[in-house]
Simulated scan of single mutants.
Amino acid sequence: MIEHSINIADLRREYIRGGLRRADLTAEPMDLFGQWFKQVCTAHLPEATAMSVGTVDDNNQPYQRLVLLKHFDRQCMIFYTNLSSRKSSHLAHRPRISLHFPWHALERQVLVLGLAEKLSVMDVKKYFYSRPRDSQISAWVSHQSSRIYSRGFLEGKFMELKNKFAHGKVPLPSFWGGYRVIIDAMEFWQGREHRLHDRFLYQRINGGWKIERLAP
Rank of each mutant, 00 (worst) to 15 (best):
L45N: 13
H71C: 01
S85G: 09
D58F: 05
T55W: 02
K87L: 03
L113G: 08
R65L: 07
E117S: 15
H93K: 15
H71W: 05
Y80E: 02
D57E: 09
D73F: 01
G114W: 01
V67H: 03
V56G: 01
Y63M: 05
A116I: 04
S52P: 00
H93G: 14
E107G: 06
R74T: 07
V53C: 09
V110L: 13
E47R: 12
R65G: 03
S84E: 14
L69H: 02
F101A: 09
P95T: 11
K125D: 08
S98Q: 12
V67L: 13
F72R: 01
M122R: 11
V110S: 04
K126C: 04
P46L: 11
D73A: 00
L45I: 15
S84C: 12
S85N: 06
H71Q: 13
C76L: 04
H44T: 15
A48L: 11
D57T: 11
K87D: 01
Y63A: 11
S89G: 14
S85Q: 05
M77G: 01
P95E: 10
H90I: 04
S52F: 08
M51V: 03
L106S: 09
F79C: 05
K126F: 04
A116H: 07
F101I: 06
M51S: 07
F101H: 03
L113T: 07
R96W: 05
T55H: 03
V110Y: 02
K87I: 03
E117C: 14
V110Q: 03
M77E: 01
V40W: 11
F101V: 05
L113V: 06
R65V: 05
A105F: 10
S85A: 10
N59R: 12
I78C: 06
L66H: 02
L106V: 12
W103K: 02
A116N: 08
F101K: 02
H44I: 14
D57R: 09
V56T: 10
D73S: 02
K70Y: 04
L99C: 10
H71Y: 11
M122F: 08
H90T: 04
K70T: 07
D123N: 14
V124L: 02
R74G: 10
M77R: 05
E47V: 08
R108A: 02
L106A: 10
S98T: 13
Q109T: 04
P102F: 12
T42I: 12
L83W: 06
S84W: 04
D58L: 10
G54E: 01
K126L: 07
P62G: 00
K118G: 10
K70H: 09
N82L: 04
L68G: 13
Y63I: 01
L68W: 08
R74I: 06
C76Y: 03
E47C: 08
V121P: 04
L106Y: 06
V40I: 14
H90Y: 05
D73I: 00
N82V: 11
K87R: 07
V67T: 09
A43W: 13
S84K: 13
G114N: 06
H104Q: 14
S85M: 06
S98W: 03
